[in-house]
Design a protein around this nucleic acid. Sequence first.
DNA 1: TTTATAATTTGACTGTTAGTCATTTTATAT
DNA 2: ATATAAAATGACTAACAGTCAAATTATAAA
Lengths: 211, 211
Amino acid sequence: MGISERKKREKEQRKNDIIDAAEKIFFKKGINNSTMDEVAEEAELSKGTLYLYFKSKEEIHFEIKTRALNILTKMFTKSICENKTGLENSMRIGKTYVDFVKKHPNYYKSMIYFESNDCSTCQFRDNCENFFKEDNPLMISTKTISRGIADGSIRSDIPANVLSQTLWAQINGILQFISTKQKILEFTGVKAEDIINSQIEIVKNGIKNKD
Amino acid sequence: MGISERKKREKEQRKNDIIDAAEKIFFKKGINNSTMDEVAEEAELSKGTLYLYFKSKEEIHFEIKTRALNILTKMFTKSICENKTGLENSMRIGKTYVDFVKKHPNYYKSMIYFESNDCSTCQFRDNCENFFKEDNPLMISTKTISRGIADGSIRSDIPANVLSQTLWAQINGILQFISTKQKILEFTGVKAEDIINSQIEIVKNGIKNKD
DNA sequence: TTTATAATTTGACTGTTAGTCATTTTATAT
DNA sequence: ATATAAAATGACTAACAGTCAAATTATAAA
């Protein structure tokens, strides 16, 4: 039946409209200074309606984070060149993540917002949930590293998934530092760029194969 | 005059008692599920009194974070051996941080709680404030790396403060990953220990001098 | 077209909690 | 014993996430 299909589509559309509205508000004022009433007004809906589509404010924010991860996943995928080594592609992925943060600082913020809660205590949905889907940044990184080990460009004494998670954790730490500790950078006269370059240097030397 | 000195001492003592009480409550239930009324009850004071000693709930939490950083600073200081190379001491510092997280998981959580807000938008006090004091973990790390560059154990092409901040950011990322992404570890069959060892391997190879 | 039914939306309302402040209690000085 | 200053109180306010009975709108049937 065509009507129920249309309704489903409309429902999905409305969900997206709400996320759009929330994005505008959250990105402008920060999630903690944004109210559901403001989101409702931006979406031209009543507050009650928001709760027909989402269980909570946090869930809306989770959806924004999911958008962020989807963008990042696509960028990772694009950054891989088939004719380059695994090591080179791994480095390219890292640089792509840096580009992502520069290009989408608000999406990045929505990602790190969740990082302070551990998944075991998360209320409604899982902090890690997005990483059990087939396509996600960590998975892409792991595959790339596997290829790097296979093609001999990356050291083989650390399993690909361990190495991948280590690098993922590292780069997250680096990006979080740069994004949240501008004052330390200023105070010590260090440029974000310096940290990035230093990170690249360390990783390159740290993971390359030395046969 | 003895009385005003005693009063100052008592005031300091009371502040500490309040932080103690808040610690008990926050560590048991998590800061977001703890109320100021609960803290007041634990401290055997009225809620109003809490606000004579602290401007806000967040400020109390900030004090807990400061305690955490003080403990970590002491542990870092202790872990340094004068008769070891700068490289060895840098690695020891990293391992000490891991020990800290194992020994004081709640203090560690109180540290990462602040990491999602960037300093520029912080309301009352600065996310980075603790790092402008003479003694702090990052400063100790920088000094150690400087010595490592001087004694020839650490590569000299990256300035000590840049390298130090890079490693600090890295290890924070690693520890945050391990603390908050247990489900990913489980799902992929990776042990926290594996990540740590992998990190150690990468850093050692990444920063050692190769004359 | 009219009426009945189902789906969707509304916004006033509730409960919770951070933070305030006029009043009371306690400590010090005279 | 009295006056004054310091410290503590807890009832109160404001803000806001989330709810739900009632109203509105869309679809189906007569």
